[in-house]
């Protein structure tokens, strides 16, 4: 029953046409939200009492680090769907998300480093969150290179899904253990976890930027999954008609 339902609504063909239909709306709404919230955040909110103007990078940094983890969760869900119900679209999504996940994690790391120079006086700190984000980044790259090393796509999909699920179990463990590790080593420096609570005038544009950034990343995921479908189903007759 469930299998039939999923197969009907998750055929790559239906998906592709739905994406084409909604893509423009999602794109323009997200651009609008993101641009308006960062304009608000950059131009109209007051300077931070402690950090001055440098804090304004949060409108890039916070959305990126937030979404970098959600993307992994999305991959894990897709992997389970693929392994349990053999939905090909789910497998395409897993490999479509991986490079975008790596990219957002990279943005989170770099923007964090840039923020760290004026705030902590150093661009790198072995802080729990930074370390686990770095590990996440390497895991994303590992997944990509893993998938690329197979010539048989279906085998690659299956093994990648297993790997993603094992990683998904491990990410909270890594986070917990790294937290635990840094509690003993960390001297009294400013950490992300201990920052003062945020003022509403900064909070609203921040939420806006997260939503907008999320929409933009979603657009990238849609494009990348479309790309995967075109590559993988190129022998199907409907693709030939479509192209």
């Amino acid at each position: 029953m469930i299998k039939k339902f999923i197969h009907q609504f998750a055929s790559p063909k239906t998906y592709l046409f739905q994406v084409n239909k909604f893509y423009n709306y999602i794109f323009f709404i997200s651009v609008f939200i993101y641009i308006s919230s960062i304009t608000w955040g950059l131009l109209f909110t007051p300077e931070d009492f402690v950090q001055g103007n440098s804090f304004r990078i949060i409108y890039l940094h916070v959305p990126a680090s937030f979404i970098s983890q959600s993307l992994y969760a999305a991959m894990a869900v897709s992997s389970i769907v693929y392994l349990v119900w053999r939905v090909k679209l789910a497998a395409y999504l897993v490999i479509a998300i991986a490079p975008i996940g790596a990219m957002t994690t990279f943005i989170a790391l770099i923007s964090g480093s840039i923020w760290g120079i004026p705030t902590w006086g150093t661009w790198w700190q072995w802080d729990a969150r930074i370390t686990s984000t770095l590990i996440l980044f390497i895991m994303y790259l590992g997944l990509i290179s893993f998938h690329n090393s197979f010539s048989n796509y279906e085998k690659a999909d299956k093994l990648l899904s297993w790997l993603v699920i094992v990683g998904a179990v491990n990410i909270p463990i890594i986070k917990k253990s790294v937290d635990w590790w840094s509690t003993l080593h960390q001297s009294a420096s400013i950490t992300l976890t201990n920052k003062p609570s945020i003022d509403p005038s900064m909070l609203y544009p921040l939420i806006g930027s997260i939503i907008g950034f999320f929409g933009l990343i979603l657009c990238l995921v849609l494009l990348s999954s479309k790309n995967q479908i075109l590559i993988r189903e190129k022998t199907k007759s409907w693709i030939k008609d479509y192209v």
Binding site: M139, G142, L159
Partner: peptide, 25 residues
């Protein structure tokens, strides 16, 4: 097992993160 016949570097790359918590302990 994951990187069977693809060389051990790939296997190490994908499993090393799993070993990090053990190293912390």
């Amino acid at each position: 097992a994951l990187s069977l016949n693809k060389g051990s570097v790939l296997g190490a790359l994908v499993t090393m993160p799993l070993a990090l918590p053990v190293l912390i302990v």
